[in-house]
Design a protein around this nucleic acid. Structure first.
Lengths: 198, 198, 198, 198
DNA sequence: CATGAATGAGTCTTCATTCAT
DNA sequence: AATGAATGAAGACTCATTCAT
């Protein structure tokens, strides 16, 4: 009965504790600079036991990449829910920019991208994360185009990609700039509005 | 007489051979996955001798980051030379996008960014590279704004940064997309033209 | 059951095998000239595994220094057991001089002293070893002073230290003298008897 | 004429600058922890040039050991000059104890002793240094024995050695004791006086 | 499921010394 | 005499992973 369920729950908790520990290590030291021992210690389990839950260090990173996708769900929702396309786009821009400018997001993305270059599996996970957003954004752009509040784009999907490129490029730069002059997203929104409105 | 000059030249050549070797290793395997031994072997020198030319592995990366700045000079020139602002911007967009979408540029940027997160010195080099372009781009935007072929921007510098963000975000995505459907820069140019033109 | 005990015993044995191996290396080549690899090989374990038992090479030396203290116990006993103070002192002198003139003791002491100069932790271990003997010797001197078979010393503790200084200085010199003309401890005993008797 | 002499003088100065540099390094970091590069840099000459003056690192240490002997000359003088044997012995004890308790002397002696264990050449230098003092001290003891102010010793030379052992053992201990409670030489003199006087 | 000892190739860096200039 | 580039073995230590318990 609940015995089995308890066991399952306990297992899931173990897994997530490992993931949490790994994530905090990766953010603090970087993926390559983090050792398996470190992760196990921070997760409060033994070194060998970690291998009962994950097959390798890379596996842990892959799972983190998957979980990152779930973090994107709120922003995907934003794009699905609202009615007025430009308002929707602006709300999304603010939200997504704020999230992606997070230290956590930037550092993790760089680490994952670094791995993706030499690792096809990670790369496709990375890409899958984005496609979800691209598709949702395409829906908004289409509605706006039909509704005459957006330009008519030569290539809808490419435009959606470019919007994300801009936001993500902005977030990356924002975080890597040493001066850290916290800029709001006002200019970013203006830029994207200009690029899309009639 | 020429003896001294020969010596100096030989030394510079050694240095640059090391840099070349390191660069090709970093591109192939990544910064962290590349060993000093590998670099030395590829440069055709002994392991210990590498340390007569560079104080550490990090030092090598730092020098590569500096040299990368010089690679940006042609694009900086593009922004300085031409007269018609929008034409200039479009030419720059094509050129810079093509360059930054280079496998070499993307991979190296990710590696450098990855280091920059945990290393202030590298971070400031990274930032310096960009500032040069931002300033040159500001000049073009200003001329275009005065000449009424660009919008009037709330913040010129931020707009310049966002243009670069878009191009770099595009280049990064282009390279990390597994399918590798080679897309031209047409959509990108359209996007940036829309974002800047009246 | 005995399973746990067996494991513990096996672990202790591993540790002591490492210590033994390290000791024999240090005696043969000196602390600095001995490599971790050498110790591991002589202990019959892998290089990496050594670091599961000791955190560093220095740690190994520290443990050896601790164990050396236990070697002093017989001489401490000598000072505690007997009744007639001068007889006790003479017996101790012979015993302690014989032990400290051992090649093993001298070489190890020099190595440890060499480390102690630059390393506070080792230095305090070194000192702790001696204090045990000083205190025991103080007891004998006190009894002898009261019993009128020793002089009355201005400072009991200092006298005890000086007796040890003499014995240890003698042992060190004896060992470092190349000619190696084996001298007995007769002169040494005479010297110390003169220095302490009425 | 003076040209040759100047050259010779300049050379000697180079040598002594190297020695000085090496000495300060050895005292600060220890013999094994000091690199040839470090010595050359501190001496203000090039790495390769050091090998024009000394054949090896060991050679440098050997020369330092030789120079140390010259430092002992004042104490040898003390033993030769004065008339009243016990006064002479006491003066020597104070002087030699003060010198050998010097941080410089202790550290250097340990380093040299450490090398001497595995290196016959260094060992014999080490021994030679001492013999000079032993002989001078023998002279004093003989005069004192004849003059009835000292005991009659079974073995004069051994007694001289033991006096030095005591002083050196005292100096070594004094320096390695962490608490560093600066003790005077009063107790030491008393100890040696007792050991030698009638 | 849980442990941590075991592995040995891997890490970056420093070593004393040589040699061409 | 003077330079410092060149050598490559050796330095201590960490790595991800496996395996017996």
């Amino acid at each position: 009965m609940s015995g089995v369920s308890d066991k399952t729950k306990a297992l899931k908790e173990r897994r997530s504790r490992i993931i949490e520990a790994a994530l905090s290590c990766f953010l603090e030291y970087g993926y390559n600079q983090t050792g398996i021992r470190q992760i196990a210690k921070r997760a409060g389990i033994s070194l060998g036991n970690l291998y009962n839950h994950f097959r390798s260090k890379e596996d842990v990173l892959a799972e983190i990449a998957v979980l990152e996708q779930q973090e994107l769900q709120p922003y995907q929702q934003m794009l699905a829910d609202h009615d007025e396309p430009m308002t929707t786009l602006m709300l999304f821009t603010t939200g997504y920019a704020t999230y992606t400018a997070t230290s956590e997001y930037v550092v993790l993305s760089i680490e994952i991208a670094g791995e993706a270059v030499h690792n096809a599996e990670i790369a496709s996970l990375f890409r899958a994360n984005r496609l979800v957003l691209v598709n949702a954004l395409c829906g908004v752009l289409k509605k706006g185009t039909v509704g005459k509040c957006f330009r008519s784009f030569t290539d809808l999907e490419q435009t959606a990609e470019l919007i994300l490129d801009t936001i993500e490029g902005y977030a990356l730069r924002e975080h890597l700039t040493p001066g850290k002059q916290k800029i709001g997203t006002a200019e970013l929104k203006e830029f994207i509005r200009n690029a899309t409105s009639l």
